[in-house]
């Protein structure tokens, strides 16, 4: 043993899943979890994080840049941007979560029915999904909003409906994998009733993949929803909502960068954290499937 050499390359799959995580990955996961915990706290108990209200106007103090008194500066009416970002978490997360719930519910109904409902139902639903796919999501969302009117809830419905097609596709594929698996065959061979096989074996294994999908999806729907708010189709100024704040600030971009940067950063950091957590959940679920 004279010379010592090390080589790098694909990580060996010798150690357990968690132990094999690199320190950087673990750090990113921890950071993402901390960001989301903060966002959740802001959404539920904003008053714990700030003492100033999001709508407290102080015209004498308008457009003041970030300072120890106002961390994120103030806007054209002298409202504290930090307080507005904190209070805005509720509306943005609400829209994101409601939207993804609607998307996954519709996706699950369509996907599972297509997979389990026999050939003709499958064919019909798949054509329907294809048509939904062919529509640009934004256009679809605009249609829903123009029919139902402008509000945070209708926006959530619009975003949810517009992204349902993609989830229906994924869920249908998973449902097919599960129904054709040996473990479902084994459950049937044991003489379990079809209802029991469906409820105890097939559905839980389809639902398993929903949690990571939901986590990844919330980040996307928040970005979408803020996009709609930016267009004035969701939350309206002066509402403290991240997208609406962005929209509100666009006239002052050259004057007060902090009005745009901080709500934008809140959106980006939240979406990114959700993606990090979602990816990790997905790896766990898939690890469970593949072994």
């Amino acid at each position: 043993m004279t010379n010592l050499l090390t080589t790098a390359g694909a990580a060996p799959d010798l150690s357990s899943r968690w132990a094999s995580k690199l320190p950087l990955q673990r750090f990113a996961l921890g950071l993402a979890a901390a960001v989301l915990a903060t966002a959740a706290l802001a959404a539920i108990f904003p008053q714990l994080l700030v003492d100033q209200g999001p709508y407290d106007i102080d015209p004498t103090n308008a457009f003041s840049p970030p300072s120890p008194q106002a961390w994120f500066g103030t806007d054209q009416n002298g409202r504290d941007v930090f307080s507005r970002v904190v209070y805005g978490a509720r509306a943005s997360l609400f829209i994101g979560i409601v939207a993804i719930s609607i998307a996954l519910f519709l996706g699950a109904v369509l996907g599972i029915t297509a997979a389990l409902g026999g050939r003709w139902l499958d064919l019909t639903i798949r054509r329907f999904i294809d048509v939904l796919y062919a529509f640009p999501g934004m256009v679809l969302a605009l249609v829903v909003i123009s029919v139902l009117g402008v509000s945070e809830l209708t926006m959530a419905i619009a975003v949810g409906a517009a992204s349902a097609a993609g989830y229906a596709h994924i869920i249908r594929a998973q449902a097919l994998i599960v129904t054709r698996s040996d473990y479902v065959a084994a459950a049937r061979a044991l003489g379990h009733s079809p209802a029991r096989v469906l409820i105890r074996t097939i559905l839980p294994n389809i639902v398993r993949i929903l949690l990571p999908l939901a986590t990844l999806g919330v980040g996307q729907t928040i970005v979408w929803a803020t996009g709609l708010s930016f267009l004035g189709l969701g939350a309206k100024p002066p509402a403290a909502e991240w997208g609406a704040m962005l929209s509100d600030s666009r006239n002052y971009v050259s004057l007060a960068w902090w009005l745009t940067v901080f709500p934008g950063a809140a959106i980006a950091v939240t979406a990114l954290s959700l993606t990090v957590i979602g990816k990790s959940l997905q790896a766990r679920v898939e690890g469970g499937r593949v072994g």
Partner: peptide
């Protein structure tokens, strides 16, 4: 491709007469 974190020790490790000990990825 032994993998990251593998520790490899060899007295001789040659391919077509050339020592490959300590080669980069």
């Amino acid at each position: 491709l032994a993998g990251e974190g593998a520790e490899i020790a060899a007295e001789r490790f040659e391919i077509e007469g050339v020592s490959v000990a300590g080669d980069t990825p």
